[in-house]
C-alpha cells in the first residue's frame, strides 16, 4: 500500500530524514514514533505529496507520489497535527468541499457524514463556522474530512491530540475497523501506550534515521515500547 524507499529530505544543509525505507501493507496499522524533530511530520508530509523531495521514492498503491501525485492522493487521506481548516466555512461546507474534490456522490457523503458525525459526536456542531469551533472540534472535522472518501491509506500526524476521551476511543475503533476492512494506517504519536495497544506494526525514527521497525512484538520483545524507545534514544 505504501512503499517508502531510501527517502531522504534535506532542509538546506540539515538532513531531516536520512535514507528511510518502509513498507506498509493493506490491513496494517502502523505507529510512527520518535522525539520532537525526529522527522515524523516530514515523512508523513512527503508521503502525502505536500512536501517535495529529491532523493528516494514513495509509492502508494504502486503509483509514485512524484510522477502521479493525483493518482496517489485519490487513495489516501492526510490529517495534520494542527487542524488549520478554512475558518470562513462551516464544518458541513468544509466536508462538502472535500467530498466534491474526491468526487464522492451525494448519497455516499450524506451517509458518511452522518456515520462519522455521530461516531465523533459532531453532527450538530457541523453547522458552526469553523472559526467558532474549539481545537478538538476542528480535529474531528479534519478526521471526518479524511474519512469521507473512504481512503485506502490514512496518514495521520498526532491524531489524538485535542480529542475528548469518548472521541479518542471511537477513533481508535474506527482505525481498527478501517484496517480490518483492508485499509492501512500510518500515524505518528507520542502516546506510546496507545501505539502499543492499538497497532500491529511500529516504526521508530531518531535523528532522521529509522532505528527500528517491524511487528510490535518483534520490536518490543518482552519489554514495553516505552522501554525500547528510551533505550534507543539513550544509544544516540
Amino acid at each position: 500500500m505504501l512503499q517508502i524507499e531510501h527517502f531522504t529530505k534535506n532542509y538546506g544543509e540539515k538532513v531531516a530524514v536520512d535514507d528511510l525505507s518502509l513498507h506498509i501493507a493493506p490491513g496494517e496499522l502502523w505507529a510512527f514514533i520518535g522525539h520532537n524533530g525526529a522527522g515524523k511530520t516530514t515523512t508523513l508530509k512527503a508521503a502525502c505529496g505536500i512536501l517535495p523531495f529529491s532523493q528516494g521514492s514513495i509509492r502508494i498503491g504502486g503509483k509514485s507520489i512524484q510522477e502521479d501525485p493525483i493518482g496517489c492522493k485519490q487513495q489516501l487521506a492526510y490529517i495534520p497535527d494542527n487542524p488549520d481548516l478554512y475558518e470562513f466555512l462551516t464544518g458541513i461546507q468544509y466536508l462538502n468541499f472535500v467530498a466534491d474534490i474526491y468526487g464522492v456522490s451525494a448519497s455516499d457523503r450524506k451517509a458518511r457524514i452522518e456515520k462519522y458525525g455521530q461516531l465523533l459526536g459532531m453532527t450538530d456542531d457541523l453547522t458552526l463556522h469553523i472559526s467558532d469551533c474549539s481545537h478538538g472540534m476542528k480535529q474531528k472535522i479534519a478526521l471526518i474530512g479524511g474519512l469521507i472518501h473512504k481512503p485506502r491509506l490514512i496518514l495521520m500526524d498526532e491524531p489524538f491530540v485535542g480529542l475528548d476521551p469518548v472521541a479518542s476511543h471511537q477513533l481508535k475503533n474506527a482505525m481498527t475497523q478501517h484496517c480490518r476492512e483492508g485499509g492501512a494506517i500510518f500515524f505518528s504519536t507520542h502516546v506510546l501506550e496507545v501505539a502499543e495497544k492499538l497497532c500491529n506494526k511500529v516504526a521508530i525514527i531518531s535523528g532522521g534515521k529509522l532505528v527500528a521497525s517491524g511487528t510490535m512484538e518483534d520490536v518490543k520483545g518482552d519489554t514495553s515500547l516505552e522501554q525500547v524507545f528510551l533505550e534507543l534514544e539513550g544509544e544516540k
Partner: peptide, 24 residues
Amino acid sequence: SGRRKKLSLQESAQRSPIGAIVRK
C-alpha cells in the same frame, strides 16, 4: 458566539473539483 442549526444534508449536491475550489 456561533449559532448551531439543525444539520441538513440536502444541500450536499455534488460539484466538480474546480467548481468546489471556485466556491471555496
